[in-house]
Design a protein around this nucleic acid. Structure first.
Lengths: 196, 196
DNA sequence: CGTCATTTTGAGGTATTTCAACGAAGGTGG
DNA sequence: CCACCTTCGTTGAAATACCTCAAAATGACG
C-alpha cells in the first residue's frame, strides 16, 4: 500500500511494467505525452479502479496522483499467480476491463458528438457520480484537476474549457469555485447532460 | 458456425445478449444508433476478433456483416462454463480485451489529434495491417465499407471523408478504386501515418 | 435502361484552435 | 509580512478545418 502526495508519479510510460495498481482513495490521472509535445489524458482513476495494465511489458501511459492518494501495488507475478489459481478473481478483473472498454466507448461518443459546454457538463456529471461517496450533498462536486487536464481528456484546449465553463456558469447551471463546482439548476443540468 | 451475407445483422443493440461471437472471416461493423439519428461506428471486426461482449445482459452495439462472413457463435452459458474451468482461455480473453482497450485508446488519440487526411491515412494503414493475410501484395487494400461507415468511425462527415480521400489521391499517396485503395507512394504514406 | 444508393463537388456558416496578453492564486525566501 | 515567481485561469481577435445544405455524377443491379 502506498500513500501518495499530489503530483507523485506512480509509473511512467515506457517503463517496464512490474506491477498493476488499484486505487483506494484519491484521484489518479493517466496520460500519454505525444511526440508533438501535446498530451492526451486517457482517464482519471477513482476508488476501486484498476490501472497500470501493461501491453508488451511496458506501461503505455504515465500515472500521476492529482490528490493525496492511497493505492495498492500488486506485483505482476503475484497477480498472475492469483489469476491462475482463482478463476473468480480473474473473471472479476475481466468484467472490470470490459466495463472500462464500454466507458471508453461512451466517452468517445461524447467527445465526438457534443460541443464544448456539453462535454464539460458530461464531465462534471461523471465526476459527480464517481465521487458521490454515500449520501454527501452531491450537488457540490470536487474538481481537483486543472483546465488543461480536463481539456486533454475531452479533447479541447484549455482556453475552450475555460470559455465553456463560463458559458455554463452564465447560463446559471453551475457555479465554479476554486477546486469545486456547485450544480445550481439540477433540472436543466440533467437535461443538458441527458440529451445526446 | 454461421455464414453471413453482407448486410446481415448479427445482433441488435438492446437485445438480450445470449452469446458472444468470434469472427472467422470477413468484416463485421459494430455501431450504435444515437437518439439524434446519427450513428457511431464502434469498430470493425476482423478475423479472430471477439465481439458481442455485453454489459448488463444486453448488447450495447449492433453488429452487421459488411462482407460475406464466417462467424462462430458461442452461447453465453457455454462461454462462462469454459472460462470457469479453463483459466488459460480466460486469461487469453482478458488479454484480448485489454488489447482492444489499447486499440480504442490509440484510435481516440488519432481522432483527437489528427486532421481528416491524417485520419484516413491511419485508417487505411490499420486496414492494411489487419487484412494483409500472408504475403498478399499488401499495397492494395480492400475498402469494402462506405464513406459513411468510415466517417462515423473516424468522426467525420461522409463529405469530409470524400474530400480527404481526394486530397490524399491528389497528393499522389494513394489511388482509389471502387472497393479498394492502392498505396502508390509507400514512403510518403508511411511518413504521414507515422507522425503524430 | 431506369432506379436507387453512394460518392463527389460547391458555397457558406460556425465552433474550436491558435496566438497573445493579462489577472489571480499559491508558495518561497528575504 | 511582503515581494517575487510560477502555475493556473480568463479573455480577446483572427485563422481554419470541418459541418451543413444542396445538387450533380457515378456506379451497382434488377
Amino acid at each position: 500500500m502506498l500513500r501518495l502526495t499530489p503530483r507523485t508519479i506512480v509509473y511512467r510510460e515506457g517503463q517496464p511494467a512490474d506491477a498493476v495498481f488499484i486505487n483506494g482513495e484519491g484521484i489518479v490521472i493517466s496520460f500519454k505525452e505525444l511526440p508533438s509535445g501535446k498530451r492526451r489524458v486517457a482517464g482519471f482513476r477513482f476508488a476501486a479502479d484498476v490501472f497500470g495494465l501493461a501491453e508488451g511489458g511496458v506501461y503505455v501511459n504515465t500515472a500521476r496522483a492529482i490528490t493525496p492518494c492511497t493505492v495498492y501495488r500488486i506485483p505482476l507475478d503475484a497477480l498472475t499467480a492469483l489469476l491462475r489459481e482463482d478463476a473468480d478473481i480473474q473473471f472479476q478483473l475481466l468484467c472490470k476491463v470490459v466495463h472500462e472498454l464500454r466507458q471508453q466507448q461512451r466517452k468517445a461518443i461524447i467527445v465526438a458528438r457534443r460541443d464544448a459546454p456539453g462535454r464539460i457538463a458530461m464531465f462534471i456529471d461523471m465526476l459527480r457520480r464517481r465521487l458521490a461517496s454515500g449520501r454527501v450533498v452531491d450537488d457540490l462536486v470536487a474538481l481537483p484537476m486543472t483546465r488543461s487536464d480536463i481539456g486533454d481528456y475531452l479533447n479541447l484546449t484549455l482556453e475552450t474549457v475555460s470559455r465553456a465553463c463560463r458559458r455554463l456558469s452564465d447560463a446559471g447551471l453551475v457555479r465554479f469555485s476554486t477546486g469545486s463546482v456547485q450544480i445550481v439548476d439540477r433540472g436543466r443540468f440533467e437535461k443538458l447532460v441527458g440529451k445526446m
